[in-house]
């Protein structure tokens, strides 16, 4: 089974599914992108084309996030391909490690009742982390577009509201009047601020990293041309000061900050959902229902 031709072909197919979308993204960037002028360029997402009737622009961030999604799907298929009951391959070890870590995270932060949230949290973590990491390949990271993260934040806001409405919308609406009815405007503002702050936190961190990287690298180019500009010919144009510091900054802003923001986004999702769920009331009602059915049975 594991060594057969069919298995190997499928493996190659999944690896292609992982790698090809990223290559397509780079090709698209090279084809549609404007040639760099060498100066400081801080722009938003590139618009590929605009759907005529509704005026909906298809931007680089949308395309890249779909490419990342396809790539993650390929990764999952590759890791879970040829799974057996007894762990034999390295990839199965890796896949089981990921799933176990994620389930442990959800169990610790949300409690055993919310274990059904584990796949969603894993999806958010993977999508966010890999989206931020695409900037290592020179692609436009979708998370540095406010629209993408705002979409995720609205999705999470819907989940939070659904968890709060678990015991009926009446209880949810009543929670706005607590602790005293005068707090109503404050409570409404804090409710609306949840998705906004989640979106801004993720977007702001990734975007500020991008801006600082561009500024530092442009500044170093200018500095090295000021220091060595008097040399004749191409010798004066070598930006020798650009060696080193931008790479360190990139490790911090692209790798560390991107993964940290993914973790924080997922953690906040878990805390808001499990915090908004009225557990005591839910358990009380469940007990009452159980008692009622038991009484009826008697």
């Amino acid at each position: 089974m594991a060594g057969s031709r069919r298995f190997k072909t499928l493996d190659a197919l999944y690896i292609c599914m992982m790698v090809l979308p990223l290559a397509v993204g780079m090709i698209l960037k090279a084809v549609f992108g404007s040639p760099g002028s060498g100066g400081i360029q801080i722009t938003g997402a590139m618009v590929f084309f605009i759907i005529p009737q509704i005026g909906l622009p298809i931007t680089e961030s949308q395309v890249n996030s779909w490419l990342v999604m396809i790539s993650i799907t390929g990764l999952c298929l590759f890791l879970t391909h040829g799974m057996t009951e007894h762990v034999q391959t390295k990839r199965q070890h890796l896949a089981e490690w990921c799933v176990e870590k994620c389930e442990k995270l959800v169990r610790e932060n949300m409690g055993p009742y919310f274990m059904s949230f584990a796949p969603f949290i894993a999806a958010i973590l993977a999508l966010s982390a890999f989206s931020s990491l695409t900037s290592l390949l020179g692609l436009f990271p979708p998370t540095s577009d406010l629209n993408v993260v705002a979409g995720w934040a609205i999705l999470v806001f819907g989940l939070i509201t659904a968890a709060k409405c678990k015991c009926g919308p009446g209880l949810y609406l009543k929670s706005f009047l607590e602790p005293i009815p005068v707090m109503l405007p404050m409570n409404i503002i804090s409710e609306i601020a949840t998705p906004i702050s989640m979106a801004f936190r993720h977007y702001g961190n990734v975007m500020s990293g991008m801006v600082i990287s561009v500024l530092v690298s442009a500044g170093l180019t200018a500095l090295s041309s000021a220091v060595l500009g008097w040399l004749p010919g191409f010798l004066g144009e070598i930006p020798f000061l650009k060696v080193g510091l931008p790479a360190v900054l990139s490790i911090y802003f692209d790798v560390f900050s991107g993964c940290l923001q993914a973790y924080i986004f997922a953690l906040l999702t878990m805390l808001y959902v499990s915090g908004g769920f009225p557990m005591e009331e839910f358990l009380r009602r469940k007990d009452a229902k159980k008692k009622k059915t038991a009484d009826q049975a008697v």
Binding site: N205, S208, L271
Partner: peptide, 13 residues
């Protein structure tokens, strides 16, 4: 890390 993320929000605004 959680608390830092929350505290960072005003700066990010």
């Amino acid at each position: 890390i959680m608390g830092c993320a929350i505290a960072e929000t005003t700066g990010l605004y």
